[in-house]
Amino acid sequence: MLRLPRITVEVPVLSVGAKPADYEQLAAYADGLRRPQGLHMTLLHIGILEDFAADVADWTKGATDPAAAAVKTAGWLRALPVLEGFTGTAERLVLLGGGRVSGLEVEVPQGVRDFQVGLVQALHELLDDLLVDNPDDFILSSRALGFRYPRWRPHVAVGKPKSQGPSWEGRPRERSGSWEIRPLTVEFGPSQIRNRQLLPGPADGIP
């Protein structure tokens, strides 16, 4: 069955650590370690655009047409500002998604957190424009958006956790489901929209 693409606002990872071996050592904690070229940090998850538009139509009891909602959302995404590249640090490997995903917890500059908050505020404005009342309730209940936590937790998913991971230089796994690791510098590129080229409406030539 064809899987429809998910739409996210994200920043690509340009490098983890000073050399490839720094990232490769995380294989001691994660099975199926992801290729470093495909790593990213999600700033805002929209999900499958058709599902998001359907959620809006359901919430507004048909007052907003799903096709119109998809086109308007696509235009909104294209008009979002771009976050410039930045540097973060990771000192902990954590379990995410109910323990199904292993990821680097990343400390990011305050400006990045402010940008992410701005994205959520912009989403509220979009929802108002789409005639969605109680945007906060909609965001938490929309299956497409998939919001699980009230606060954004900066992280980079790197693979699936091992059932019982080893210690890192003698430091064992903590009860919270995380491991302290040797600090790693993580370089990020400018923000981008995943699957932007598949959005409905006029293309703008921006990748």
Rank of each mutant, 00 (worst) to 15 (best):
K61E: 15
G205Y: 05
H155N: 08
P81T: 05
Y29W: 14
L130N: 00
Q197M: 10
P66G: 09
S178Y: 03
I139M: 15
K162G: 07
A53Q: 03
P172G: 00
A122S: 14
D31F: 10
V16F: 08
W152G: 11
L96Y: 06
P190Q: 08
L49A: 01
A63G: 12
H45L: 07
I7Y: 04
A27Q: 11
P154W: 11
V71A: 02
Y23I: 04
L14P: 10
M1F: 08
P12Q: 02
G47H: 02
D55P: 08
T73C: 02
P150L: 14
P161E: 09
L2Y: 11
S141Q: 15
D51H: 09
E84Y: 00
G38Q: 10
A67G: 09
A144I: 11
N134I: 12
L123P: 10
D58E: 15
W179I: 03
P207I: 06
F52C: 03
G111Y: 09
F52Y: 07
E107Q: 15
H124A: 08
A27S: 12
P66Q: 02
D31H: 09
D31S: 13
V71W: 14
L199K: 04
R182H: 10
L199F: 08
R92M: 10
L184V: 05
L93H: 04
E105F: 10
E50D: 07
V9M: 06
D58S: 14
L83G: 02
I48H: 02
L140N: 15
W59L: 14
A144G: 13
P81H: 05
M41S: 00
G205D: 03
Y149Q: 14
A53M: 06
D136N: 10
P200E: 06
L2D: 14
V117F: 13
P5S: 06
Y29L: 14
G177Q: 04
Q121H: 13
S15G: 11
A63P: 10
P183H: 05
G75H: 00
V106K: 10
L130K: 01
A30R: 07
L49V: 07
D129S: 11
V11S: 03
F86M: 04
A63D: 11
Q116V: 12
K61F: 15
G189I: 08
S178T: 08
R78W: 01
V120P: 01
V156C: 11
G205R: 06
G85S: 01
D55R: 03
F188L: 08
F52A: 00
P200L: 04
P20K: 08
G146C: 12
R3V: 10
Q164C: 05
I193F: 05
D65R: 01
T64N: 06
D31P: 08
V16C: 04
T185W: 03
R173S: 04
R3D: 02
V16D: 09
W179C: 04
G97C: 05
R113V: 15
V158N: 01
T42K: 07
A18W: 13
G146K: 14
E187H: 09
P202T: 11
P12I: 08
V13E: 06
S176Y: 03
H45N: 12
L140M: 14
V9C: 03
Y29D: 10
N134T: 11
R148A: 13
A144D: 13
L130V: 04
V132G: 05
